[in-house]
Nucleic acid binder design. Structure first.
Length: 202
DNA sequence: AGCACGATTAACT
DNA sequence: GTTAATCGTGCTC
């Protein structure tokens, strides 16, 4: 069944780890595209401000046009446009009024591999969804999904529940691509992945 | 109104 | 290892 609001309405780091092993599903033209989440990153915990997070970097930590959804209700999609080319998919977490979100960085393809390969220019299965902008392309997620309700029973994008992983199967380390974000946030180990999974991003 | 830059990727040398 | 692609957003003037 589709994960519901209470699952998402928890601190970003908790949700980030719990999302590993769940399945991100997209319905397009009557076809299901799906992949198991194998890598995530947490941004902005309520208890400690996170300078790497868009919600804290811009406008002194107050909502802006782009970051408004992050400050909203958990279980909605925050889709962000980067480098003039790529869309990155996040899930809003925590309480309303806080800029908490989890970036989905990699999937293991499960359903609709041919369709994914078609929109990914015929790339090999190994390179279909092993990066944050690759998976949005494969699942055809763009700005029209910014603010989408992932808990809507009739929605075309949602996350399917699955048994939790053993803690020992979860690896963690610093987040990727933070650029000039100052310490200590630059080195905070808020990136999580499924140990040994070949679809974790490079 | 203008400008610098980014939670990346792919194609180079 | 290096770099072009490419544009919305937020900040400064």
């Amino acid at each position: 069944m589709r994960l519901q609001r209470p699952f998402f309405a928890r601190p970003a780091r908790v949700v980030a780890q719990d999302l590993l092993g769940k399945r991100l599903v997209r319905l397009v033209n009557g076809r299901l595209l799906a992949g198991t989440i194998v890598e995530t990153e947490a941004y902005c915990d309520s208890d400690q401000p996170d300078l790497a997070c868009h919600g804290h970097r811009a406008n002194g930590g107050k909502p802006t046009g782009r970051t408004a959804v992050m400050f909203g209700t958990a279980g909605f999609a925050y889709v962000y446009f980067s480098y003039g080319i790529h869309w990155l998919f996040n899930v809003v977490t925590g309480e309303p009024g806080q800029a908490n979100a989890v970036l989905v960085r990699a999937l293991e393809p499960v359903l609709g591999l041919e369709e994914m390969q078609r929109v990914r220019n015929g790339r090999s299965v190994a390179q279909l969804t092993n990066g944050p902008a690759k998976l949005t392309q494969a699942l055809q997620i763009d700005k029209s999904f910014n603010g989408a309700n992932l808990c809507d029973p009739h929605g075309v994008l949602w996350i399917e529940d699955a048994p939790p992983l053993l803690p020992a199967a979860i690896g963690c380390g610093p987040r990727i691509g933070l650029g000039k974000t100052p310490e200590p946030w630059f080195s905070m180990p808020w990136r999580y992945w499924v140990c040994g999974n070949p679809f974790v991003s490079v």
